[in-house]
Design a protein around this nucleic acid. Structure first.
Lengths: 126, 126
DNA sequence: CGGGATCCTCAGGGATACTG
DNA sequence: CAGTATCCCTGAGGATCCCG
């Protein structure tokens, strides 16, 4: 066996972790935070399509997981900064690998999709 | 900018790719396939908790993306084997990094969660 | 064995409004 | 600014049955 635990078991704690971080919003947030501490509304603005509800709830979960930290400054109005913890920074390396992979291979994927769709079309075609 | 495209834009093709592969079932399937070509029901049995519907639909999507290949053998009853393509194998490296990260850091995460929950509990009073 | 077709549910997440 | 609170709805996904 490749793993100490069986990651394919739904009782494996590692799989619970995988379930949590295999989330597009969490990945985008972490990747964005790898550029440095960032404020709530900046994240909301920068990550197109995320709602404030999902953003805040994802941030809370990531904070609970110890992957990011939340720091509030007693300014008026209040300022809050989110940043990666060392644990989160560690993970963001893997995230980066993912994002970079997606970037450098998207053309291959799009070609594969087009080819697949052409095959499907001719298979069910007239 | 770190990327050629802006991955935080919802129009970025790389983000579409990220959306697709940031899926726990897809990740588990790819990771399982990295051990070698595998049949449908074997996947279903091994990956605890996946339904047949989700399995087949995820396999189809992964095949469309060119990440896995499907090979049917004219036996009775029919035998079908799924395997990683070279593109998929390439990705599965990143997936493995993810899975391993999850495995080796799950304890830290669980501790962080417990600490967070303790803080929350004491924050919201007796 | 390897799926396709259906039905059903329920929770993830969007939109909106409000607050410290 | 940085969220919380509600309402609401859609679609992901589970359960079941069936077929080549």
């Amino acid at each position: 066996m490749k793993y100490d635990y069986d990651i394919y078991s739904d009782r494996c704690p590692a799989r619970a972790v995988l379930d949590r971080i295999a989330d597009k919003w969490a990945l985008l947030i972490m990747d964005r935070l790898s550029a440095g501490p960032t404020r709530f509304n900046t994240l909301k603005r920068d990550i197109a399509g995320i709602s404030q509800k999902v953003l805040s709830q994802t941030l809370k979960l990531l904070e609970r997981d110890g992957l990011i930290s939340r720091k509030a400054y007693a300014t008026v109005p209040v300022t809050v900064e989110y940043a990666l913890t060392s644990l989160g920074e560690n993970l963001s390396r893997a995230v980066e690998a993912f994002a970079h992979w997606a970037e450098s291979n998207m053309d291959a994927i799009r070609k594969a999709q087009a080819a697949y769709d052409r095959r499907e079309r001719s298979a069910s075609g007239p």
